[in-house]
Lab assay of single mutants.
Amino acid sequence: KELVLALYDYQEKSPREVTMKKGDILTLLNSTNKDWWKVEVADRQGFVPAAYVKKL
């Protein structure tokens, strides 16, 4: 499975999103959308801005 690194803190703004902290390592589930990537963090799945994460 592919992992991404959170480059910035992100606070979810809708139930479809997830909160992450800078430095978090997240499991990447889907990166087909260039703006929003689906990730899993702490047993929750949701979207984060693609610009806020980097593939490892």
Rank of each mutant, 00 (worst) to 15 (best):
V48M: 02
M20A: 02
K13V: 09
W36M: 06
N33L: 10
E40Y: 07
V39I: 08
I25H: 05
V41P: 02
K54P: 01
S31A: 13
G23C: 09
E40L: 09
T32G: 10
N33P: 05
L7C: 09
L26T: 01
V4Y: 08
R16T: 12
L29R: 04
S14R: 09
E12V: 06
K1W: 13
K34I: 10
Q11Y: 15
T27F: 13
A6H: 00
G46Q: 01
P49T: 02
S14N: 12
Q11D: 14
S31E: 15
K22T: 07
L5V: 15
S31W: 10
A50C: 08
A50V: 07
L3M: 12
A51I: 11
V4M: 05
A6I: 03
K13C: 11
V41E: 04
D24C: 08
A51M: 12
Q11L: 13
K54W: 11
M20W: 01
D24R: 04
N30I: 08
V48E: 00
D9S: 09
R16E: 13
E17K: 04
N30A: 09
D9T: 06
V53N: 00
S14E: 09
L3E: 07
A50L: 02
P49Y: 03
D24A: 08
R44D: 03
V53M: 07
E12H: 09
D43F: 10
W36A: 02
L5S: 04
A6K: 00
N30V: 09
A51T: 13
A42I: 12
I25A: 03
Y10F: 08
L29I: 14
V39T: 01
A6G: 03
N33E: 12
M20R: 00
W36D: 00
Y10I: 01
V41F: 13
T27L: 14
L28C: 08
W36K: 02
D9K: 04
W36T: 02
K55R: 15
S31N: 09
L56Y: 09
P49K: 04
K34P: 14
Y10H: 04
N30P: 03
K54C: 15
D43L: 09
A42W: 12
K22I: 06
V39H: 00
K54E: 12
A50W: 02
L28H: 00
K1G: 10
P15F: 09
V53F: 06
S14H: 12
V41W: 07
L28F: 04
V39S: 00
Q45D: 09
I25V: 11
T32P: 04
E17N: 05
L26C: 09
D9E: 06
Q45V: 14
E12A: 15
Y52G: 06
E40F: 07
E17H: 07
K13D: 06
D43P: 12
W37H: 03
L3D: 04
P15S: 12
V53T: 05
L28T: 01
L5N: 02
G46S: 02
K13F: 05
K55L: 14
I25E: 03
A6T: 04
E40R: 10
N33V: 05
T27R: 12
Y10P: 01
E40G: 10
F47H: 05
A51C: 14
G23E: 02
L56Q: 05
K21M: 10
K38C: 14
K55P: 10
V4G: 11
F47D: 04
K1S: 09
T27W: 15
N33Q: 10
P15H: 10
L26I: 08
G46V: 05
W37Y: 07
A6W: 02
A50Y: 03
D43I: 07
K38F: 15
Y10R: 02
L7F: 04
L26E: 01
P15K: 10
D24S: 08
K13I: 07
L28Y: 02
K22M: 08
S14A: 09
D24W: 13
V39D: 00
N33K: 08
D9L: 03
V39Y: 01
T19E: 03
D35T: 14
G23H: 05
Q11S: 12
Q45N: 10
F47Q: 04
D35Q: 14
W37T: 03
F47R: 03
T32Y: 10
V39M: 02
L56C: 14
V39A: 01
Y52M: 11
F47P: 00
V41I: 15
F47G: 02
G46A: 03
A42P: 13
L5R: 09
G23M: 04
K34W: 08
Y52K: 07
V53I: 08
D35F: 15
S31F: 08
A51Y: 09
D35Y: 15
D24H: 06
A6D: 00
D9W: 04
L5H: 04
V4S: 03
G46I: 05
A50E: 03
S31L: 05
A50G: 05
L29W: 06
D35M: 14
F47S: 03
S31Y: 08
D43A: 10
L7P: 00
D35C: 14
Q11T: 14
M20F: 10
V48K: 00
A6P: 01
K21F: 12
K1V: 14
K55T: 08
E40W: 08
W37M: 04
G46K: 02
L7D: 01
P49F: 03
V39Q: 00
K1C: 14
G23N: 07
Y52S: 10
R44M: 06
Y10E: 01
R16F: 13
R44Y: 05
E2P: 11
Y52V: 06
L29D: 02
R44G: 06
E2A: 12
E17I: 04
T19A: 07
W36S: 02
V48I: 09
Q45K: 11
K38A: 08
S31P: 06
G23Q: 02
D9C: 06
S14W: 07
L3G: 03
Y10C: 02
K1Q: 11
V48H: 01
L3K: 11
D43M: 10
T19S: 15
K34C: 11
L29K: 05
A6R: 01
V39K: 00
V41C: 13
R44I: 07
V4F: 05
T19G: 09
T19L: 03
G23F: 05
L56P: 03
K55F: 09
A42D: 14
E17W: 04
K1T: 12
V39W: 00
D35V: 15
Y52E: 02
E2Q: 14
M20S: 01
L56D: 03
T19N: 07
K22A: 13
L56K: 04
P49W: 04
A42E: 13
S14C: 11
N33F: 09
Y8S: 08
S31G: 13
P49H: 03
K21Q: 10
K55G: 05
E12M: 13
G46C: 03
K21L: 08
T27A: 13
L5D: 01
V39N: 00
K34V: 12
D24P: 00
W37A: 04
N33T: 07
V18E: 01
L26M: 13
D35G: 09
P15C: 10
K22H: 06
E12C: 12
P49G: 02
I25P: 01
Y10L: 02
E12K: 14
G23S: 03
A42L: 14
L3T: 09
V18G: 02
V53D: 01
V53R: 00
Q45C: 12
A6C: 13
V18P: 01
V41L: 15
T19H: 05
S14V: 05
N30R: 07
L26Q: 01
V18W: 05
E17R: 05
K34Y: 09
R44L: 06
E40V: 11
A6V: 11
T32Q: 13
P49E: 02
E17Y: 06
K1L: 14
T27S: 10
G23K: 02
R16Y: 13
L29C: 07
I25C: 07
E2H: 12
K55W: 08
K21A: 09
D43V: 08
L28N: 00
Q11M: 13
D35E: 13
R16H: 13
A50F: 03
W36V: 03
L3P: 04
A42K: 14
T32M: 11
V53H: 01
